[in-house]
């Protein structure tokens, strides 16, 4: 018990909302890693690894993927550490481990910093330095640029901050090839332009939450009408951009068809959000767009993944 006693006095009362030693369970620490966000990061990074030119040993690929996942999780923990005050007043986030009082802010900070440094070091030592540098920049961008600076200061927070979520396929590409290719930049841009319509659709029906927390999301600052216009504009940019790998010869016919069909549906839902502005139908349209946007991104990357695995040749070889 002595070790717990000394640890008990190493943190201040302000840092320790709990009365006594930690109640944090393993699942609380896993929740700090934002597993759902992490799964999307792993998936897009895997596509980056498999689409990159050259051969990479499966063990090295697995190591890279693990480091990218841990780095993304560390960013999530540091985000929760910094945003614990606003998480506590938002319905979507108030049950997270820190506002719920199961993990202290100090514990989350130590956990996030340890994993951040560890993931970057291991990626650098076992895979390559470029991938490690990109991962370090991604963590820095998400935690410092987005979480600490942009999120509370500008309605363009998720536009610029979206870059953090767009880096994983580029990190994966760099891990596999040791370079940054044009296709990895395209993958980055697809996620970058996908982020605003995705999050603004959510923020349209969670605007009260963001307003209560003092987060200047676009619907709070500029109103829902301007948000709907911006969603439509970004979707108009996103859909042709998402089809560009096919037209540039970097992806096959399957990707061309999938990105065209899914893009048309994404655009149709964005138009629906733009036109329906009042009542339950407007909220339903926003929820549909939010839900479909996840499926849309998943579809694009899943087809790229299938093509990279050289599965059916009639699917992958006809377009490029």
């Amino acid at each position: 018990m002595t070790d717990v006693a000394s640890r008990d006095y190493a943190i201040t009362a302000e840092e320790r909302p709990l009365d006594g030693p930690s109640y944090a369970s393993v699942s609380d620490y896993l929740a700090l890693l934002k597993p759902r966000v992490m799964s999307l990061v792993v998936f897009t990074a895997l596509v980056g690894i498999l689409r990159a030119p050259g051969e990479v040993h499966p063990v090295i690929a697995f190591t890279a993927l693990l480091c990218i996942a841990i780095g993304a999780g560390a960013s999530g923990a540091l985000n929760m550490w910094w945003d614990a005050d606003i998480d506590a007043v938002m319905s979507r986030t108030k049950r997270r481990p820190i506002p719920a009082g199961r993990v202290t802010p100090g514990e989350a900070l130590a956990f996030g910093m340890t994993l951040s440094v560890g993931s970057v070091l291991v990626l650098g030592l076992l895979v390559n330095e470029l991938a490690a540098a990109l991962l370090a920049f991604t963590i820095f961008f998400y935690v410092v640029i987005y979480t600490m600076w942009l999120k509370r200061s500008t309605p363009q927070n998720i536009v610029i901050g979206g870059a953090a979520g767009a880096f994983p396929p580029m990190v994966g590409w760099a891990a596999a090839s040791g370079a940054i290719g044009l296709e990895s930049v395209l993958l980055f841009l697809i996620i970058f332009f996908w982020t605003p319509p995705h999050f603004w659709a959510l923020s349209l029906y969670k605007a009260d939450d963001y307003a209560r927390a003092g987060v200047p999301m676009l619907p709070v600052v500029s109103g829902p009408d301007e948000t709907r216009r911006q969603i439509l504009l970004y979707t108009l940019l996103l859909v042709p951009l998402a089809m560009s790998p096919y037209f540039l010869g970097m992806a096959g016919l399957a990707y061309g068809v999938a990105s065209g069909v899914a893009g048309a549906m994404m655009l149709a839902l964005a138009v629906k959000v733009y036109r329906l502005r009042e009542g339950a139908v407007a909220i339903k349209a926003c929820k549909q767009l939010f839900g479909f946007s996840i499926l849309y991104l998943f579809t694009l990357f899943a087809v790229l993944l299938v093509e990279a695995l050289h599965l059916p040749s009639w699917l992958s070889g006809l377009g490029g």
Binding site: M1, T2, V4, A5, D8, G20, P21, S22, Y23, A24, S25, V26, Y29
Partner: peptide, 17 residues
């Protein structure tokens, strides 16, 4: 006598960690 005594739940969670 040490001032901090862990509850059964705290002991269980520390062990799982």
């Amino acid at each position: 006598v040490d001032g901090v005594v862990l509850s059964e739940e705290q002991r269980r969670r520390r062990r799982s960690r």
